[in-house]
Deep mutational scan, measured.
Amino acid sequence: QVNIAPGSLDKALNQYAAHSGFTLSVDASLTRGKQSNGLHGDYDVESGLQQLLDGSGLQVKPLGNNSWTLEP
C-alpha cells in the first residue's frame, strides 16, 4: 500500500522509488517545479508512476532490470 502526499513531483517520485524498490533515472530539469497529486493505494510500478506523472506532460519508459526513466 502506497501513501504519498501531494506536492513536489521530485519528492513524490523519490518516495515511490524507495517504497517500491525500483531505480528511477531522471534528468532533474524534467521534473523541476512540477507538482504531483500524490498516490494512495496498491499499484504496480508502471501504473503508480503514470499516476504520479498525471498532468506533468512526462511519460514513463522502462529501461529493464527494474529501472525506469522519464521523457517528455
Rank of each mutant, 00 (worst) to 15 (best):
Q50Y: 09
T31K: 01
I4G: 03
D44K: 05
H19K: 09
S56D: 00
T31Y: 06
N37C: 14
Q1Y: 15
S8R: 11
L53T: 06
P62T: 08
K11D: 15
F22V: 10
R32W: 14
D44V: 04
L13P: 04
L49N: 00
L24H: 03
E46L: 15
V2G: 03
K34N: 03
Q59P: 00
L9S: 03
V2H: 06
L58I: 06
G7Y: 01
H19P: 00
A17L: 06
L58P: 00
Y16V: 02
Q35T: 13
V26S: 08
N3E: 10
S25W: 14
T23L: 12
G33R: 04
E46D: 07
S56F: 06
A18R: 08
S36A: 06
G41Q: 02
D10N: 06
G21D: 05
E46G: 08
Q51L: 13
G55S: 06
V60K: 03
K61E: 01
T69S: 12
L24T: 02
A18L: 13
G21H: 09
L52F: 01
Y43S: 01
T69N: 04
L58V: 02
A5M: 10
V45D: 03
N65A: 09
N14I: 13
S8I: 05
Q15F: 09
Y43L: 05
E46M: 14
T23S: 09
T23C: 12
G21A: 04
L63F: 08
N65E: 10
I4D: 02
Q15L: 11
H40C: 14
Q59Y: 10
Q59L: 11
S8L: 09
V2E: 03
S36W: 04
L9R: 03
N3T: 11
S29D: 13
S56T: 15
S67V: 15
G21S: 06
S67H: 14
S47A: 12
I4A: 02
T23F: 12
H19I: 15
K61M: 07
P62Y: 15
H19E: 11
A17H: 04
L24N: 02
N37R: 11
D42T: 14
L13W: 02
G57P: 01
L49P: 03
E71M: 11
N66P: 01
Q15H: 08
L9P: 02
L39W: 02
V60S: 10
F22S: 03
S36P: 02
V2Y: 10
E71K: 07
S20M: 15
S67T: 14
S8G: 06
K34I: 10
G55Q: 05
A5P: 14
S47K: 11
V26P: 05
V60P: 15
S36Y: 02
D54I: 15
H40V: 14
N14C: 15
F22W: 02
N37A: 12
A28T: 11
T69D: 05
V45N: 04
Q50W: 12
S36K: 00
N3P: 04
G64Q: 04
V45A: 06
L58Y: 03
N14V: 12
Q50T: 13
A5L: 10
T69V: 12
L70W: 00
Q15V: 06
T69L: 14
L70K: 01
L70R: 03
L30C: 12
G7N: 08
N14P: 00
I4H: 04
N66V: 00
Q1M: 14
G64C: 07
W68E: 02
S47L: 09
G48N: 03
E71A: 09
N66F: 06
S56A: 07
N37Q: 12
A5H: 08
S47R: 12
G38Y: 04
S8D: 13
Y43H: 08
L9M: 05
P62V: 08
S67A: 13
S56C: 08
A12M: 04
G48S: 04
G41L: 03
K34V: 08
Q15P: 00
A12G: 03
L13H: 02
S36C: 11
L9W: 00
S25A: 11
P72I: 12
V2W: 11
G41F: 04
L30W: 05
P6A: 12
A17T: 05
A18Q: 12
P72F: 10
L39P: 00
L13R: 00
K34T: 03
V60H: 09
G48R: 00
G57A: 04
N66Q: 05
Q59R: 13
L52Y: 00
L63H: 08
G55T: 04
G48A: 07
S20I: 14
D27Y: 05
L52V: 03
L63Y: 07
L63D: 07
Y43G: 03
D54T: 13
A5I: 06
L30P: 05
K11Q: 14
A28P: 15
G57T: 02
S67K: 11
N3G: 04
K11I: 13
R32V: 15
N65S: 10
L70F: 06
N3F: 14
D44N: 07
R32H: 15
A5D: 10
L53W: 00
Q35M: 14
D42S: 13
V45E: 04
T23E: 11
L63Q: 07
D54L: 15
D27L: 08
L24R: 00
D44P: 07
Q51I: 14
D54A: 15
S29G: 10
A28L: 11
H40F: 13
G64S: 07
T31G: 05
G64R: 04
G57F: 04
L70I: 15
E46T: 09
K11S: 14
A17Y: 00
S56M: 08
L24D: 04
P72Y: 11
V60D: 00
G64E: 05
D27Q: 07
L70S: 00
G21L: 06
L24W: 07
G64Y: 04
V2Q: 04
Y43W: 12
A12N: 06
L53D: 00
N14G: 10
G55R: 05
L30G: 07
A5E: 13
N37D: 08
G64F: 04
G41S: 02
P72K: 11
N37L: 12
G21F: 06
Q15I: 10
L24M: 09
N3C: 15
N37I: 09
V2K: 01
Y16Q: 01
A12D: 02
V60M: 11
V2S: 05
V45I: 14
G33W: 07
S29M: 10
T23H: 12
P72N: 07
L13S: 02
D54E: 14
P62I: 07
L49A: 00
L13E: 02
T31A: 03
T31D: 06
A5S: 11
Q35L: 13
V2D: 03
Q35C: 15
V2R: 01
G38D: 01
L30D: 07
W68F: 12
Y43R: 01
G48C: 04
V60T: 07
L49H: 02
E71S: 08
S20G: 13
K11A: 14
Q51W: 08
H19G: 06
L13A: 01
G55I: 03
S29H: 11
A18G: 06
D27A: 06
L9Q: 02
A12K: 03
W68V: 03
D10H: 11
A28V: 10
L39M: 05
H40N: 12
S25K: 13
L49G: 00
P6S: 09
L49R: 00
P72M: 10
D54K: 15
T23W: 09
A5W: 09
G48W: 07
A5C: 13
H40W: 10
Q59S: 12
P62L: 09
E71R: 06
N3A: 09
S25L: 15
V45G: 03
F22K: 01
G41T: 02
L24G: 04
G57C: 11
P72R: 10
D42A: 13
L70Y: 02
D27V: 07
I4P: 00
G48D: 02
G48T: 03
